[in-house]
């Protein structure tokens, strides 16, 4: 499966400046992609556009070669395949219980309660949250909240996962645990797109680095390639 951005321009309502300026990009399932760039370069906008929260005012977003439809069923189909984990897990965890928070996505996709329960158990095991399912979300540590937010998205079985600087607020002990989850996810065939300011992490972890600047792709390629910083 492929997610394709064709000359995508996105402008926030009420602002004259485009947050994305003609982005052309292809992302394939199973890829590990690092999205780098300074603050305001368009990383978060790109993620919200990929998930259908923002709609391009010019250009097109294609999912597996077909243009994304922005009606109810089209958006549901897009969000079934493209998940976003936000930078601050407290912005994403809406429910007071981990178990119930994770179950939101599967039930929104129209799955039965039994199937949703199975998925919750599955992703809880995948993210190491089995013991925390009954805990209130406000009683989790920072790393646990990040994993719970990740689990809430993974329960929808996305083929593309955009993670917005999720490792930034983690301590050095928790960071490898979250990266390990992302690794296993990529190994299972999901594309993982990690937005980060950490060049060392991007170089060490990703197969491809996309450098955004001023709302467009400034450079992309394999990390460590000699042409990178020239």
């Amino acid at each position: 499966m492929q997610l394709t951005f064709i000359d995508v321009h996105v402008r926030y309502p009420g602002l004259d400046i485009s947050a994305l300026n003609g982005v052309n990009l292809e992302i394939n399932t199973g890829e590990r992609v690092a999205l780098v760039g300074r603050n305001g370069s368009g990383k978060s906008t790109l993620m919200l556009t990929a998930n259908g929260i923002l709609r391009p005012h010019q250009g097109a977003l294609l999912l597996d070669g077909r243009p994304v439809r922005y009606d109810r069923s089209g958006l549901r189909e897009l969000r079934r395949n493209v998940g976003v984990v936000f930078q601050n897990p407290d912005d994403q965890l809406f429910s007071a219980s981990v178990y119930q928070d994770i179950s939101l996505g599967p039930l929104n996709l129209g799955l039965t309660q039994a199937e949703a329960h199975r998925r919750v158990q599955e992703v809880a095991e995948f993210c190491g949250l089995q013991e925390l399912l009954d805990r209130p979300t406000h009683a989790l540590s920072g790393g646990e909240k990040t994993r719970a937010a990740l689990a809430g998205v993974l329960a929808m079985s996305p083929r593309f996962l955009f993670a917005d600087e999720v490792t930034n607020s983690l301590d050095p002990w928790m960071r490898p645990q979250v990266l390990e989850i992302l690794d296993r996810l990529a190994d299972s065939g999901c594309a993982v797109i990690l937005a980060t300011h950490d060049w060392a992490l991007a170089s060490a972890w990703a197969q491809r680095v996309i450098w955004l600047e001023g709302g467009s792709v400034f450079r992309q390629g394999k990390p460590g390639a000699s042409s990178w910083l020239t």
Partner: peptide, 16 residues
């Protein structure tokens, strides 16, 4: 964040 998880206005969650 809720919209990104296919929320359509109702907060459906599994019963405890």
């Amino acid at each position: 964040a809720l919209q990104s998880r296919a929320w359509d206005g109702a907060l459906r969650v599994l019963p405890r």
